[in-house]
Amino acid sequence: MKRSVGQILGRAGIRIPLILWSIAVLYPIIWMFIGSLKSNAEIYRNPWGFPEILNWQNYVNAWSNYNIDTSVWNSLIVTLVGTLLTLLMAIPTAYAIERINFKGSKLLFTLYVSAMMIPMVLGWIPLFFLLSNIGLLDNVFGLAIVYSVSQLPFTIFVLTSFMSTIPKSLEEAASIDGMSPYGMLWKIITPLSMSGIITVTIMNAIQFWNEYFMALIFLNSSENYTLALAIDFISNEAQYTNAWGTLFASLIIAIIPVIVLYAIFQRRIAKGMTEGAIKG
């Protein structure tokens, strides 16, 4: 009896904080969704209640009148291009550091790991002038390049931990059969490191989609705004135009892709992080 009570208390001690944390996370999202379906009058009159009539016009206003459609497209370009560039640079680099013995490989890996400790804010001013000089300031592709470079150390760090556990005998057998190092990388190492690749891809994509400060610095014109900048603009406008329903609608539009992406790949992310922790 004492053992069963202890087990119940132990489970309750774990589950109750998790339930409270889930409520604290989900409640603002649910409240924001409900607010996106209200008129401005309803938001002021009954901010915590349900809408009397579902007002989908807020989504139409956000999509059309505040150019959320263009901002979504810009964020999609930045996220896809930035994520792809990060992988194209990180996968060969991680392979070279981990599997090819050359002088300075350990020093190079140390430099990449050390770069993770340097605040990105220290490079914003030099990057601003660099992008301006090469004509990529106020350009979504220039922003994508900055994003990819900023996440390169983290991506390399994760991928090297996965590649380190792949048996070298597979490469030796492939080398005997005449396969080139490039073939080993793309046909053997990359498929076997897919858990780590998927993990860093999703984490980088979410980071790029939600990023605000670098987009604020490197993008000037409204037609190049990412979703974070467009929402900030709507937030400033809402203070004077009372477009709170439109603001809530734009926030829902912004978080839906992230929620869907995480819901689909949550097991992959958990598995990849767990394997990475064990392998590292």
Rank of each mutant, 00 (worst) to 15 (best):
P181W: 11
M194F: 15
W21V: 09
N74S: 08
L251H: 05
T226Y: 00
L227N: 00
F208Q: 01
E275L: 13
A263Y: 13
L152A: 00
N204Q: 08
I23E: 01
T165E: 14
D69M: 11
I278D: 12
V258L: 13
Y262P: 01
W31D: 07
N40S: 11
I91D: 07
T246V: 15
V78M: 15
M163R: 12
A270H: 00
Y212V: 04
M163E: 13
L88Y: 13
Q239G: 10
S64D: 15
A174G: 13
S195A: 13
K187I: 03
Q239W: 08
P47I: 02
L76M: 12
S39E: 06
K279Y: 13
V60P: 00
A174I: 04
I259E: 10
G49P: 12
T201V: 03
L9T: 04
N101Y: 12
Q207A: 09
A90W: 05
I43F: 07
V5C: 09
G35S: 04
W63Y: 14
L54V: 15
S39A: 02
P17R: 12
R267F: 00
K279W: 11
S114T: 08
Y112T: 00
S22P: 00
I231V: 11
A215P: 02
V25G: 04
G245R: 05
F50L: 15
L219H: 01
G49E: 11
S221I: 00
M89I: 13
N40R: 03
F50W: 14
L137Q: 09
R45K: 12
F265L: 15
A230R: 07
N74T: 05
F50P: 02
N236Y: 03
L130A: 09
L170S: 14
V60Q: 13
G123D: 11
S114F: 07
K279S: 15
I234F: 07
G49D: 05
A238C: 09
N46W: 12
N46F: 09
Y59E: 06
I197V: 02
Q207Y: 14
A254L: 08
Q7G: 00
L127D: 06
A173W: 02
Y27V: 15
P191I: 06
E223M: 10
I8H: 05
I189Y: 08
G280W: 09
I255E: 00
I77M: 12
F157H: 06
L80D: 13
S250T: 00
Q57R: 15
W244F: 15
L130W: 11
Y182T: 10
T86L: 06
A62T: 06
T199I: 00
Q57E: 15
I29F: 09
I125W: 04
L26N: 01
S22H: 02
A254Y: 10
M194Q: 12
